[in-house]
Design a protein around this nucleic acid. Structure first.
Lengths: 143, 143
DNA sequence: ATAGATGCAAATGTTTTGCAGGAAA
DNA sequence: TTTCCTGCAAAACATTTGCATCTAT
């Protein structure tokens, strides 16, 4: 099975919370992992549906929430009216192309540092942040 | 009249676009300016309603869109399911307290610089950005 | 006179909830 | 056999749209 590690992680989480191991959860996790990233709830549902006609939208949303809790997924919102899910991995922010929709991840230590200083100045405790740069990607900027 | 400058700016914009000067638009602008900042569409509607029972929600939303186009307001979204409007002024980002809801504005030149460098690295043209730090404000962090 | 604005009600679109039936432990 | 899940339909919710009417120019 592909993505064995992730399926194992899910199983462990389910056990630890006394939740049940169902085939829907497996299927949704598999489809989510195949999609590779930044997929909307709707889109994910469509893909799940394509292979498993009897899985409901509700279950997709509930399962994605579960995967977030389990630390396998994270939620994002890029102002297009849909929640997107990505596979959880090291911290990063996003460049979002408003023409083609491409989403590029970036990391910038200078920004992280500067944020900490800002927070200190305001005696603010940062729990999370959201940082997105919207514009035209390399391919779209010439148009 | 309070906020004469802004009302004049609105009048100019309306003229320039061949749009009409209505009392609803004046009232909504006045209530928006009084509110001072980060007010949701819903809340704004409630406040407008309190004084002018015959102004519809639709008109409030349409007018806020207009004020954004006119450069008097800007839209923001802090992940609480509502669009907020603030009086347009110099560029800044936000600290959002997830306990009390307080919104603090900040400016950080280092972050702005670093963003430009990131964009260069990806040959990306930034049109706008969104940067929010979520956490506990000075008053709420002790709790 | 006429382009544009208004307000109601209904639609929108994504996500969530109630609930009765089903599956896992 | 009990606790948890599922899927459907309906609700939620902020915002937008259709449309007939009204108003500023």
């Amino acid at each position: 099975m592909a993505h064995e590690l992730e399926h194992k992680a899910l199983a462990q989480y389910l056990d630890s919370q006394n939740l049940k191991h169902t085939k829907q959860r497996d299927v949704i996790l598999a489809v989510f992992l195949e999609a590779k990233g930044h997929i909307t709830g709707e889109d994910l549902y469509r893909r799940v549906r394509a292979k498993h006609k009897n899985i409901g939208q509700t279950t997709v949303y509930r399962t994605m929430k579960l995967l977030c809790d389990a630390g396998l997924a994270t939620e994002h919102n890029f102002n297009d009216g849909a929640t997107r899910y990505e596979i959880k991995h090291e911290h990063h922010d996003h460049l979002v192309c408003v023409r083609c929709g491409k989403i590029i991840e970036f990391q910038c230590e200078k920004i992280e540092e500067a944020q900490k200083i800002v927070a200190q100045d305001y005696r603010f405790l940062i729990l999370r942040h959201r940082h997105e740069l919207y514009g035209h990607c390399e391919n779209c900027r010439e148009r």
